[in-house]
């Protein structure tokens, strides 16, 4: 079972690794975009898929990370990739600050609050809050990232940076899923009352998941800023949050392969549909409905967990 999965992951990774050798700059850049959204999706998956929190404002944390990187890089000339942990930290702290009073809200109320936070952040960025975000212009002139003296510039080079980050994310989140923390999250998503009854501090775990997911999005924001070299508020609109949310549900909420596939579909399909020119988004909308109807639980839904008992009897616990 795990061996098979290892083979699949390894095969996909190997296939991806040679992609830039065959693809032109455009398709490589599409893959880069997919990679960024895959990492964002995985971070949001922790919040939506595992903790079951309806978050439609994830772009806010992504923005905090990106702006942290951009401001410190342009003002103090700190190499941008070195700022990555700090970006995660600021996004995480920001998430902690706002999630603390609202984490107890249920379902759709939490949804509108996260939308609200996302909009407030975007409006604050546009209005040049504290005089450091550059207003609608955004921040430009971000230095190209370099890794051990190698300046990363071309899409092919970014490809390896981004997908290495995605691989790291997959590895860490896979470990997390099977940790005590991951199990607790799934328990409280399935039945909060029962989880609480079993001695799980639900508010604490939800908050942890929220902050961790946000911090990870902040780190992706760093890579985004490094790649674009210019960031502007419209890159962090409500629509971005919707895209991240959609790719999770479409691919399979709570499932890492599902989220990866979701990123390929949500970011890749509009590119494939470019042939339809003006109709491309209409086709895309119809495709979204169709995919949801034919695979209601997402395309690659999370598999029920299986635990082998030490003795002969094998017990199943479905998640």
């Amino acid at each position: 079972m795990t061996e098979k999965r290892f083979l699949v992951y390894g095969g996909v990774a190997a296939l991806l690794a040679v992609c830039p050798l065959f693809l032109n700059a455009y398709w490589t850049d599409v893959l880069n975009s997919i990679g960024l959204y895959a990492a964002l999706g995985l971070s949001l998956n922790l919040i939506v898929g595992h903790a079951g929190l309806f978050n439609l404002g994830h772009a806010a944390f992504y923005a905090v990370g990106a702006y942290t990187a951009a401001i410190l890089n342009t003002k103090f000339h700190i190499p941008i990739l070195a700022l990555m942990p700090l970006c995660g930290l600021t996004a995480g702290l920001f998430a902690l600050l706002i999630a603390r009073p609202i984490i107890h809200l249920r379902g759709d109320y939490l949804c509108i609050v996260t939308i609200g936070v996302g909009e407030i952040v975007r409006i604050a960025l546009i209005n040049n809050v504290f005089g450091i975000t550059g207003g609608a212009n955004g921040i430009f002139g971000i230095a190209r990232p370099s890794l051990m003296g190698w300046v990363i510039r071309r899409p092919q080079e970014f490809f390896y940076l981004i997908w290495a980050f995605v691989a790291l994310t997959v590895f860490l989140f896979h470990r997390l899923e099977n940790s005590r923390f991951g199990r607790a999250l799934n328990y409280l998503r399935e039945d909060e009352t029962a989880a609480e009854g079993s001695g799980i501090d639900t508010a604490h775990y939800k908050l942890m998941a929220f902050v961790l997911g946000a911090a990870w999005a902040g780190m992706v924001g760093n890579i985004y800023a490094a790649k674009m070299t210019i960031i502007a508020p419209e890159s962090f609109s409500f629509w971005e949050s919707v895209v991240m949310f959609t790719l999770i549900i479409l691919g399979g909420s709570g499932s890492i392969p599902g989220v990866l596939l979701g990123a390929f579909l949500i970011v890749g399909l509009p590119e494939v549909f470019r042939g339809f020119t003006n109709a491309r988004m209409m086709v895309f909308g119809a495709a979204m409905i169709a995919m949801m109807i034919f695979r209601t639980g997402g395309i690659l839904p999370a598999r029920p967990r299986r635990y082998e008992l030490l003795k002969e009897e094998a017990a199943e616990e479905s998640t």
């Binding site: 939506v48 309806f54 919707v242 949310f245 959609t246 549900i249 479409l250 909420s253 003006n278 109709a279 988004m281 209409m282 895309f284 909308g285 119809a286 495709a287 979204m288 409905i289 949801m292 109807i293 209601t296 639980g297 997402g298």
Partner: peptide, 30 residues
């Protein structure tokens, strides 16, 4: 868009709704 999803996870229907929104606005544009 919604009836086939009535007994599936709630968030699936939300995504279907988002798809319908994109579909409608772009159809109007066309």
């Amino acid at each position: 868009a919604y009836r086939p999803l009535r007994h599936s996870p709630r968030l699936s229907a939300v995504v279907s709704a988002l798809g319908a929104s994109i579909f409608f606005s772009n159809t109007l544009m066309l």
